[in-house]
Simulated scan of single mutants.
Amino acid sequence: MHKRDHNWEDDFHHEGDGYTMVVRKPGAHRILIPAGYNFVDVYLGRSMTNYKIAGVETLSPNTPPSTYVFLPANGEREIHAVRSGWSVQMIFGTDDLTQMLQSIFEMRDTKPSAWTAHAIHHAEDASMVGIAQAIAGVWRKRLALPDRDQLDAAARLLVMRLAYNLTVVAHVNLRAKNQNASRFQAVLDHIAQNLPDRMSLDELASIANLSPYHFARVFRDTMGHSPHQYIKLQRVAVAKQMLKRSDEPIAAIAYDCGFSSQSHMTDVFKKTLGVTPGILRKNRE
């Protein structure tokens, strides 16, 4: 049931049902994560850690105590890490986290990737550290090792706490997005009502009562496009409908929708839709 890691002779290694748990001593680690498995790394005390995944450094050093890192399931990964403190790491299947999110938090049809904003979720959590300390403490002090049932329970608690943290992050992000969307409604209305006109970033930011820099960043996070891209897509959408529903000259539609010329609209259509306005009109039903 328990064995030492073949690569690190002082490490504690346990393979449970659907998960693998390892207690790592300080030092250099090479960690292999199979495709389709999640990875959580709980730091016990301060660590100096650099993750390198496929040769790319993904996390800065000077990690504070009571911290964990979560990598959602993806393709096979090889991680090289160097740290000054002990840690507890666990690899577990995606189904476990999905079921936890669904059954405990009643989040139906939810995939873990939908609840993580980044490839790496990095946060402090004293509860997860407490669970990890209970596992690592008996190994470090050479006390009686926990049995399989105890380790299974600890693994489930770690996944439960992780699911809770991801849910909180998701709800906070969703609430902020909804608040921003409400704030931006006046901006969206202004854009819709003034498509033929030139609209500057300063003008739109003033409607949202934000600085231009902050407005541009939050608008992109909320709408998925920069203000400039959003205006362009709205112009394309309106022009597309006009081409299908009216016989107005294409040049007139271009000016009505805010394009500088018919050729300008043609270039934008080709880049955005892959067809010209003329072809779109010709193929209308």
Rank of each mutant, 00 (worst) to 15 (best):
V22A: 05
T276N: 00
N74Y: 10
L201R: 02
N165H: 05
V40S: 12
D247E: 06
F184L: 05
K25V: 14
G55D: 11
R142W: 03
R108N: 04
T116C: 04
N180S: 06
A117T: 12
H225D: 08
L143W: 11
D197M: 03
L201W: 09
L101A: 08
K232V: 06
P26I: 06
S261G: 08
N283E: 04
P277G: 06
T49S: 15
S226F: 10
T98W: 02
H118S: 14
L151R: 14
K270M: 06
V129S: 15
V168R: 15
T49Q: 12
M1Q: 10
L273S: 08
P212G: 08
E248S: 13
I31L: 01
R217G: 02
K240T: 10
L158E: 03
L101Y: 08
H190F: 14
M90V: 01
A54Q: 03
S87I: 04
Y164A: 13
K271H: 10
K141F: 11
V159E: 05
A170D: 07
E285S: 09
L32P: 01
M107H: 07
H190S: 09
E78K: 15
L195D: 00
E285N: 11
E76I: 15
E15S: 11
P34W: 05
F269G: 06
I104G: 02
D10A: 05
Y213K: 14
R235A: 00
N283V: 07
V23F: 01
R77E: 12
F219Y: 04
D256Y: 07
K177L: 07
V88C: 08
A208D: 08
S246E: 11
E9I: 11
K177M: 06
A136F: 09
A28E: 14
V172L: 15
D202K: 12
I135T: 03
D10L: 13
T63A: 15
P227M: 11
G278D: 01
A153N: 13
L162H: 09
N209T: 14
T58N: 12
P61N: 05
G137N: 12
D125P: 08
P249T: 01
D149T: 14
L158Y: 07
D5W: 15
P146Q: 09
L243T: 03
R245N: 11
S206F: 01
G16P: 05
Q150D: 01
I253P: 02
R83W: 01
M128W: 03
P249E: 05
R156Q: 08
N194P: 09
Q193I: 09
L280Q: 01
A35L: 01
G93Y: 02
H225R: 10
A252C: 08
P227K: 00
S60Y: 14
N180Q: 03
I120L: 07
I31H: 09
D11T: 09
F12G: 08
V82N: 07
S211A: 09
E248C: 01
H13V: 07
A81F: 07
F259Y: 04
A136V: 14
N7M: 15
L243Y: 00
D41M: 04
D147Q: 05
G36Q: 08
M107I: 13
H122M: 13
T110K: 08
L174T: 05
S260A: 06
N165M: 12
A252W: 00
M199L: 11
F92V: 03
C257G: 02
R30N: 05
L157P: 07
S103Q: 15
T20N: 04
V168G: 15
R161C: 03
N38H: 14
D202I: 03
E76C: 06
V218K: 13
